[in-house]
Amino acid sequence: MDSQSNAAIRTAEALVDTSAKPSGTEATPDACVSAELSPPEEKSQVQSRTPVMIWFRTSGPRYLVRIMALVAAVLLWELASDNGFSFYVNFENIPAPSVVGAALGAELAGQEFYLHILHSLERVAIAYVMAVVLGVVIGVAMGRSRWAEDIILPYIELLRPIPAVAWIPLAILMLPTEQSSIVFITFLGALFPVILNTVHGVEQTNGLLVRAARSLGASRTAILWHVVLPGAMPSIVAGLAIGMGVAWFSLLAGEIISGQYGIGYYTWNSYTLIQYPQIIIGMLTIGGLGTLCTLLVRKGCSPLLKWQARGGRS
C-alpha cells in the first residue's frame, strides 16, 4: 500500500519535472545557457505544491476505494454474524463487529490492554534492534567475503525454514528467563530477512562505482561506507521492513509460551477462556501494530533512499 502511493507520488513528480525542466538541455548552446541560468531553487516552489494536487487527483480516489473495500468487508461480516450465516463457513459463533467494537471499548477503558501492548512492543523493540544490527553486520560480511559466506550460509539455509513455534521448546530449555526466550524467538524471525537482503544488496555492488572510488583515492573502508552500503541500502531497507513483519508474527508464537502480558499471550489466553471478541481484538491489534511498525521502518529509512526519487533534491 505504502510503496504504491510512493510510486504514484514519484510519477507525479516525474511529470512535473519533465515539464519544468528544459529537456534535452544541451541540444543547442542557447538551451544549455538557459538551463544554467535558471537554478533549480526556482522550480522547487512549483514542485512542492503540484505533487500534492496531483496526488489528490490521482491517488486520492484510490485511497477512497481502499477504505470503502474495508468498510464493505466489515458490513458483510456484521450481516453474516447477525443472521447466523452458515454455509460451509460458519459465522454463528463469531461475534459481530459491533460486539467486538463494544469489547474493544471496554478494553481501551481499562489498563490491562495497554500493558499487553507495551510488553509486546518492548519485546519487539529489543529483538528487532538486535536482529538489525547483527543481520546487517553478518550480511555485509557475507556479501564481502567468500569465507564468511561459505561458513555462515549453511546455517542460514538450514535454520531459516524452521517456523518460530518450533523453537519454543529449545528456547525454554536454553535461555534463563521467559522474557529472553520470547525475545530470542522474535529475534530469529527478524534476523533472516535482514541478513539475506543485506547479502543480496552488497553482492550487487556496482563495480564501475568501486573503480571510480578507487581512482579518487578511496580506501577499502571508505569504499564500504561510501559505495557498498549506500548501493545496498534499497535492498537492506526492504529487508528491514520484511523483518519487522516477521518479528510480529514470531512474537505471537513466542508469547504462546508464557508470560503474564503481551498481545500474543492475550490472544492465546482469550482462546483458552473462550472469549471470542477478545480473540478478534488480539488478532487485529497484532495486524495493526505490525503494519504500523513496518510503516514506521519504511518512513524512517526513506531519507536514506531519497536519491532514488527522480527529481529529488536535498
Binding site: 573503480r211 581512482s215 579518487l216 561510501h226 536519491w307
Partner: peptide
C-alpha cells in the same frame, strides 16, 4: 589506482546517492 590519475568513464559512474 591513485588520485594522481583522474578517471572519467563512459557513463553512469557518478555515485547516485
Amino acid at each position: 589506482p591513485g588520485p594522481d590519475r583522474g578517471m572519467v568513464f563512459q557513463q553512469h559512474s557518478l555515485f547516485p546517492w
